[in-house]
């Protein structure tokens, strides 16, 4: 398999890697970089567990092929907290108990983060729509919606 040299950024850290053409961003994150916060729930773009923010947009890491990475800025769940200071969104998830098993949580957080950056005060319908690619089997979604609404209300993402 042909290998590519790619240079990109993960949570602001520069990375240089040789990767075969068929590798996905998800496997590069989890296997090469041991950033296992990003999860694989389906490997096919159907569950959102692998959601990361690439150049400001929420995407499924399982659908991006490694050779495309060159020059990209990638944000993963590991980059949300600043040191041991968790972000207001993470705090809101905890406060509203918007997680149970936590396997969907990294993807949920990244989708919500991306939504709130674009739209600091989304309506409930906008939240549901933006998050509808993220599956959760535990919570029934209500507390996740509430966590997002609460952090938006605080004006944390106001531009």
């Amino acid at each position: 398999m042909k290998e590519y040299l790619v240079k990109f950024f993960v949570n602001d850290e520069p990375i240089e890697l040789r990767v075969p053409a068929n590798r996905t961003l998800l496997s590069v994150l989890r296997e090469d970089l041991a950033l296992t916060g990003t999860k694989e729930g389906c490997g096919a773009g159907e569950c959102g567990a692998c959601t990361v923010i690439v150049d400001g947009k929420a995407v499924n890491a399982c659908l991006i092929l490694a050779p495309e990475l060159d020059g990209m800025h990638i944000e993963t769940v590991e980059g949300l907290a600043k040191g041991s200071q968790i972000s207001p969104l993470q705090e809101s998830f905890i406060e509203h108990m918007a997680l149970q098993c936590g396997f969907c949580t990294p993807g949920m957080l990244m989708s919500a983060e991306s939504l709130l950056r674009d739209n600091p005060h989304p309506t409930r319908d906008e939240i549901k729509k933006a998050m509808s690619g993220n599956l959760c089997r535990c919570t029934g979604y209500k507390k996740i919606v509430e966590a997002i609404e609460a952090v938006a209300e605080k004006g944390v993402y106001d531009k």
Binding site: A34, G37, T38, V77, F93, I94, M97, L99
Partner: peptide
């Protein structure tokens, strides 16, 4: 309603699931 014990681990991606172990 005390906070979940595993909450911070789970929102920071540091909770380790079976496939995460290196």
């Amino acid at each position: 309603s005390v906070e979940r014990l595993d909450a911070i681990k789970k929102v920071t991606g540091s909770a380790q699931f079976a496939d995460d172990i290196q």
